[in-house]
Design a protein around this nucleic acid. Structure first.
Lengths: 261, 261
DNA sequence: TAGTGGTCTAGACCACATA
DNA sequence: ATGTGGTCTAGACCACTAC
């Protein structure tokens, strides 16, 4: 092991160690690696230092390094293969696929999802507070609201309203609206800020849809519509965005994912 | 450490070891303990053998025993406290609370759930197949179907249809229907068979409700109703039951839980 | 063949709970 | 004071991958 190959691991330790000296070492290493991946120090798909490198550059023994790496695998943040090393989990893979609004394709035995197209209708900055305030901990900070239409299989239009803290994702307000068209905002955020969505809290309620929802979506006016609400959280459990979906009656089946105790 | 205190751990090893000689030891120990807990060999709340006892009675070293126990904690199957030992996680605690149909109480800031009452309408054995067949892997085996009404906060009635393999939960067919009234079937199953529900797969679709749903529930006739479907899985990931809920329009907000990648 | 992760052990020290 | 789980290390051997 020559010193050249230890340059990058050494730089990693210089920047990220110690994250918190009061924690156990395996937890410190786990957090340091999570933080560095979130900040893009290790890019998606990049090879991480080997166990031996981490033993050499951190104050951790082999078993401690292995425990930290094993926990990162359980978190879905990295992938490891015997003989070939550890890499940052690929956000361009399954994570890039839509997470919300996954409608099952009946012509494929409900094993695939229907195609989804998005169109941006509006974007503006909100100073006022609302149900999203507590959810994304925005307090009195300005919030960016993005209204979109999701079209499922070319025949069902879902109105979506996305809320996030404006200062946290500046590109969402700096870019022209046209540049957001057709994009998966979750993926967009994951790529630009290296903060993949890791878990979502889901709720369901019924409301009379507001005028813009009736106008652009497929919800009938005057009747209660299904309002599907999502709060998305990042790797560290910090809230990232709040999103409402107004789902009209449809024959398609919506996959809500797997929930664990 | 006298031999008397090793009686129970020794009996555990005699009955459950090895679960599968081809697996790593930490995985074997994890499975053996999971299996023994599921079968009631260790009762809910009971103290498990200490790390030292397991080192003495199994072919595992201390670190291996610790790794297996740590994984069981992550699974939510046991709880450990320094100085006082490892115990089987209490199914009478949070797990006993309703999992499905958790409507938020608006008078308590949406931090508590509304009370839920159940009433059994019907129970019969099905020989035919249906959408539940693949979900619970019943094949051509008879399935027990239990129709119930869930009443939320005394003013919203939800029709529920529960499906499970009849031979797997014989008490569900042997007991008189009256004995199932008011019971939480998930808890009932967990207690009798030591198989707590561990994760659920959730789907949403819209259907015209069948006659019995319109008659006993609050869904209007002739209009599409929200059909919320749940497939519940046990500790080992094996499917346990399939359940449909016909949810009428309501002002209450339904908590769908947290979904992770 | 060399490098990498996966498993496992023996042993040490520490923090916390119970008595 | 004793027993318990929590952390950590050094070192060994094995399985798989890539060259």
């Amino acid at each position: 092991m020559d010193s050249y190959s230890l340059e990058r691991p050494t730089e990693f330790v210089r920047r990220y160690w110690p994250p918190d000296p009061n924690l156990p070492k395996h937890e410190q290493l786990r957090r340091a690696l999570t933080q560095s991946i979130m900040e893009g120090f290790w890019k998606v798909g990049a090879r991480l230092p080997t166990e031996a490198d981490l033993v050499a550059t951190t104050p951790c023994g082999l078993a401690t390094v292995q425990r930290a790496l094993r926990e990162l695998v359980a978190d879905g943040i990295i992938e490891r293969r015997r003989g070939s090393g550890s890499v940052v989990a690929d956000l361009n893979g399954p994570i890039e696929e839509p997470w919300h609004m996954r409608f099952l394709d009946p012509t494929k035995g409900n094993t695939a999802y229907l195609p989804l197209f998005t169109e941006v209708l509006d974007r503006h900055i909100l100073e006022e507070q609302g149900p999203w305030t507590n959810a994304i901990e925005s307090g009195t900070n300005p919030v960016v609201r993005i209204d979109r239409i999701f079209t499922v299989n070319n025949d069902c239009r879902i109105y979506s309203i996305f809320y996030a803290i404006a200062s946290r994702f500046p590109e969402l307000i700096e870019l022209p609206v046209a540049a957001l068209g057709g994009k998966n905002l979750k993926t967009f955020i994951a790529r630009r800020y290296h903060v993949p969505v890791h878990k979502v809290k889901q709720k369901l309620r019924y409301v009379i849809p507001p005028a813009e929802v009736v106008e652009h979506g497929d919800c009938p006016a005057g009747f209660p519509a299904t309002l599907f609400n999502v709060i998305a959280y990042g790797l560290n459990g910090e809230p990232m965005y709040y999103q409402d979906f107004y789902i009209p009656p449809t024959d398609y089946e919506l996959d809500l994912g797997i929930t664990t105790k």
